[in-house]
Structure formats: structure tokens, C-alpha cells
Simulated scan of single mutants.
Amino acid sequence: MAAAIVVACAPAALAVNEDDWDSCARAAELSSDRPIRGCTAVIKAGERMLAHLVAAYNNRGLAFRSNGEVDRAIADYDQAIRLMPDYHVAINNRGVALMAKGEFDRAIADFDRAIQLRPDYLAAFGARAAAYARKGQFDRAIADLDVIIKVDPKNPLLIRERGAMKAKLGDQIGADADFRRAEALVSREVQQRPR
């Protein structure tokens, strides 16, 4: 659900070494302290381009969160949002971090804002569905999953998840239909794999 923003630029023009910039840009895929060091170097360099600085705060937030440092992640997302108030990715990422702390209402407010800014941002719908489910608001979780499934109708994980939400609401017929559909999609995928 988290997203890194990769900004293409010439590292030499940034006064940041190439390894630091690369580590920062790849924060979502690296699981070490390298992204934190890289993004910190970008931030300390006093980037002249706002987009680079915002990306560095957002990506360092991703790295902090993956290291279990949720409060530090939230602080970095706050900085990214302060610099670029309409940056839906950082708003969504902060919501994910807040959800990790059990602050579901604040997280949902962030997901709502990210969706308001980008109505096609499916990551925010998925994150909000998870927050609603954690709050026991399964009907709202289903509504958000419906939005994603409309765009990605062959995703068995989403369909199975929606089935689980329907079951929790007592809609066993709808749940069974989703479970069968998800199972059929998985079977079809397995059959289509090269042997």
C-alpha cells in the first residue's frame, strides 16, 4: 500500500552522491538502513527542487516504517505534506503508518483526503478498506474493495478478501460466490502457467 516516488535527475547536480540518491529513490524495495542514510543525505543537502525534498521525506518515511519506527515515519510524512499539502502518496502513507499504531479514524481521514485528491488512487481505497475492516465496518470495507475489483476484476486476493467481509456481515451467499470466483481465478491462472 505504500508508495515510493522516484525522481529522475542527475545526481551530480544535486550535491548528493549517486549511491545516496539511488538508496533514497529505492526506499520501498530496500530493507536496510541504506534508504534512511540516503534520504537523510538528500534532505541535508538542502535540495533546491521541492519535488526532490518531498520525495526524500516520503521515502525515508517508508524506510522508517519498514524498520518499525512508525513515529519517525509519521514525522517524515508530515514534513512531506507540509512542503506539498496535496501530495496524495505521502498522505496515504501517513494513513498506513497511523493504522499501524491503531489510530484508525485518523488513518481513514488521510485515506479520504488521498482519494479526494486522486479519485483513481487505488492504494488509498485498499488501505481504507483495511482500516474499515479493523474497525468492524465491513460494509464500508466491501464498498472500497468493490471500487478496486471493478478496476482489477481478476484479482483473487481482493475477491477472497471481499468474500471474507461479506461472511462477517452474515451474507454467506455473497461470500460463497466470491470464494468460488476467487478459486476459479486461481485455478485458471495455474492452468495457464507454462509447464
Rank of each mutant, 00 (worst) to 15 (best):
M1I: 13
A2D: 03
A3S: 06
V6G: 03
V7A: 01
A8Y: 08
A8C: 03
C9E: 10
C9K: 11
C9M: 07
A10V: 08
L14Y: 00
L14F: 00
A15H: 08
V16D: 01
E18K: 11
E18I: 07
W21C: 07
D22I: 02
S23M: 00
S23R: 04
A25P: 01
R26G: 00
A27R: 09
A28Q: 11
E29Y: 01
R34H: 02
P35Y: 01
I36D: 03
R37S: 12
C39E: 02
C39W: 02
T40P: 07
T40W: 01
T40R: 06
V42Y: 03
K44I: 00
A45L: 03
G46I: 05
M49A: 11
M49L: 07
L53V: 00
L53A: 02
A55V: 04
G61T: 09
L62I: 15
A63H: 09
R65D: 13
S66P: 00
S66I: 03
N67A: 15
G68Y: 04
V70D: 04
I74S: 08
A75E: 15
D76H: 05
D78N: 15
Q79R: 15
A80E: 05
M84W: 13
P85Q: 06
D86A: 12
Y87A: 01
Y87N: 14
I91T: 05
I91K: 03
I91W: 05
I91D: 02
R94S: 08
M99N: 08
A100V: 03
K101M: 11
G102Y: 07
E103Q: 14
F104R: 06
D105V: 07
D105S: 10
A107G: 11
A107M: 11
I108H: 05
I108Q: 05
I108K: 07
A109Q: 12
D110Y: 05
D112H: 10
D112P: 04
D112R: 03
R113Q: 15
R113E: 15
L117S: 12
P119F: 09
P119R: 12
D120V: 06
D120W: 01
L122H: 13
F125V: 06
A127S: 15
R128E: 10
A129L: 08
A129I: 05
A131R: 05
Y132P: 10
R134G: 02
G136Y: 07
G136D: 09
Q137W: 08
F138K: 02
D139S: 14
R140K: 15
A141S: 12
A141Y: 07
I142N: 04
V147A: 10
I148W: 04
I149C: 09
D152L: 14
P153V: 13
P153F: 11
N155Q: 12
N155R: 12
L157R: 12
L158Q: 07
R160Q: 10
R160N: 12
R160Y: 12
A164W: 05
K166M: 07
A167I: 04
A167H: 10
A167T: 04
K168E: 14
D171M: 08
Q172A: 11
I173Y: 00
I173H: 02
A177L: 09
D178Y: 10
F179E: 05
F179V: 09
R180L: 13
R180M: 11
R181V: 03
A182I: 09
E183G: 09
A184P: 06
V186Y: 04
E189K: 13
V190T: 12
R193N: 10
R193Q: 15
P194E: 10
R195G: 14
R195H: 14
